[in-house]
Amino acid sequence: MDITVKTQGTDLISRLAQMFENVIHQGHGSLALVFLIGIIFGGIIQYTRVDKFEKIAGFAMLKDTIVPKMLFLAVGLTSIGLYFMIEAGYAHYHIKPIIWQGLLVGGALFGISMAIFGKCPGTGPVSIAEGRIDVLVGAIGGLFGGLVFTLYYDDFFKPLMGESLGKLTLPSFFPGHEHVVALIFGVAVTLIAIVIPKIELFDEADLSQLPDDQRPDK
């Protein structure tokens, strides 16, 4: 039996249906796989508690280092595996271009807002899923940000981002030594993750829900 979904309209439901249809046809994994990647992504972030205000704003205040430790470890391990996967043809590069103005202005705005919000676009939805209303309000702010960006992209934001200087990677600066550079980078970033001292800012409101023997602060 064929199931027909009306995906031509411009109303909300049709456009959401178009989103699923797009993912089915764009060739970046099946719809189920993309959804599963999301479930695992949300699960890892929630289970490690790095979506918490105390972890992200806590890092901004230098009172918690779980976020940088986990980020650097993930980057270090992935960079080694990914480099050799790409060499073997099992993955491809998806490098973002060097656009100086966009990176400097965008990075500064992003860092400022991350410190105030205590969330980022990946951890925010996870916090909403565990009932944080203030983050939902921030997400609505984000939707307006996305709207403004779309509306004024051609006239304002695109010129502000500046010219692309290409998609460079670190190993490309060391021709002939790419393998060594990739290994050194991966090991160095992993070591950074281990060397950063572990400091934690706990949230009693969460910990009080747990049995005594499961509290990470004990």
């Binding site: 965008g106 992003f110 860092g111 400022i112 502000l160």
Partner: peptide, 17 residues
């Protein structure tokens, strides 16, 4: 502050790519 930060966060992320 959440609303304001959410707003500039998305502008910043999209500027940087």
């Amino acid at each position: 502050w959440s609303f304001f930060a959410g707003f500039i966060m998305i502008i910043g992320a999209r500027l940087a790519g």
